[in-house]
């Protein structure tokens, strides 16, 4: 971690970069396992629970490790998280919540029409994954001064 980096990037912004990378990689890996697995297999036989848990577990472990490293690497400041960090965090959460809502609505509709639980689950999972990606991306942009149209 160069001194220049830790001075121009706040600790919270660094945490968000971890979030950006883990959410993006998790989404790509999960979909990369799921979609090929769906080809030529009846939906109810497609294995998705194990891949999901593996991806989630790995992301949590890697993310936690990265957070520990960042905590150690960032210089001791009098303030780590201020109102700008909180404001930008709220923007990220706002952007992400719309993804969770869409995923949830799709899941409810699919459940009502008795679609295979595979579809219900994956509506929720994809909703969560996209929420993570969109929220972390919009936070990264806001830290650079590009705010989303709200």
């Amino acid at each position: 971690m160069t001194r220049e980096c830790t001075e121009s990037v706040s600790r919270d912004e660094a945490y968000n970069w971890v979030f950006v990378l883990t959410s993006l990689i998790s989404t790509l890996v999960y979909l990369g396992i799921l979609i090929p697995g769906m080809i030529g297999t009846p939906i109810s036989d497609v294995s998705y629970v194990a891949p999901f848990l593996w991806v989630l577990g790995s992301a949590l472990v890697v993310g936690f490790g990265a957070v520990v490293v960042i905590r150690a690497a960032w210089p001791k400041e009098s303030r780590f998280r201020d109102e700008r960090d909180k404001e930008i965090d709220l923007i990220g959460q706002y952007v992400g919540s719309s993804m969770v809502t869409i995923g949830g609505m799709a899941a409810l509709t699919l459940s009502i029409v008795d679609a295979d639980r595979f579809w219900v689950s994956n509506s929720l999972i994809v909703g969560f994954l996209f929420a993570a990606v969109f929220s972390s991306f919009s936070r990264a942009a806001a830290y650079r001064g590009e705010y989303p149209e709200l």
Partner: peptide, 12 residues
């Protein structure tokens, strides 16, 4: 420090 924010906020 005087204002009570992070250095990066002043930069921004």
């Amino acid at each position: 420090d005087r204002v009570g924010v992070t250095r990066q906020t002043i930069i921004a």
